[in-house]
Amino acid sequence: MKRRRRDAVLALVMLGPSAVILVAFVLYPLARAVWLGRQRCDARAQNCRTNGFRQYVDVVQSREFQHSLWVTVKFALLTVPVGVALGLGLAVLADRHLRGVGFFRTVFSSTVATSVAVASLMWLFLLQPSRGVLANIGWLNQLAPVIKRPGLLNDAGTALSGVALSSVWANLGFTFIVVTAGLQSIPRELHESAYVDGAGPWRRFTNVTVPMLSPTLVFVGVVLTSRAFQAYGEIDLLTKGGPVPQDSTSTLTYLIYGSTSIARSDAGLQSTVAVLLFVVLLVLSVVQLRGLERRVHYGN
């Protein structure tokens, strides 16, 4: 009895620091944002007048929100499948017994060292229409004149793809590392028995590698999706949500925080969109978990 009480006191002490931080900087702001999201306020969150929970409905129905949501979904569609496929391709390519393959593994993992600011500025430099490197490669311009004029990031039709390019590249190191670890954990016997049964390399890839790798690929896909839905730095640095007036790269996060975004000057509206972003991600993870349970082959 005495010990139990001592344990409880000790638990309080040990959980205290984490609990204080998580309550003050995760749970409280979440609750507060839900509350503030009912209001229109000035940028300092003062002079609020309440619209009640109708404000959420209004925002969901607004053109700006729907546009941002659609841009975000497009951004995920542009980055996630390509990102997973490239990571898988690189990992399989470097999973061979060749002398010096370690060097190539280091190269393929290298982009994990770039922060969003570093990666975005490198691509900004590459993609600049006049002084950028890509705009000054002759044959590439013949192939895709948009790179020179008006520039991949300045054309409403291609800007999001330009941002996606930078993002896929920046995430490549992460995907490569995780998929490589997954590849190495596939038991050799599976490959061997498939080989003995006469399966060629392609059959072994589709019938052994991919099914055994599916938990890893789903994991990578989930992480990349949540990153896509939370992308901010690359938008801020590469396009500022533009080009205007189409706002072709104004994602949900940019709608909340972007320096040129309309919600930026209204803490109430910012909160509304921030809470809706949470809801969207929540729905997304429920859907993904459902799919995960059904589809994935976990072995034993």
């Binding site: 638990a11 702001p29 979440l30 909340i256 803490a267 910012q270 921030a274 972003l277 949470f278 991600l281």
Partner: peptide, 26 residues
Amino acid sequence: RFPLKTFFFGLFLATLLVPIETTLVI
């Protein structure tokens, strides 16, 4: 061993679901 352990652990895990972009305004 302490009371409401599962509940508190669940609460900790729940914070993982909240994206940082949702809380930064506040």
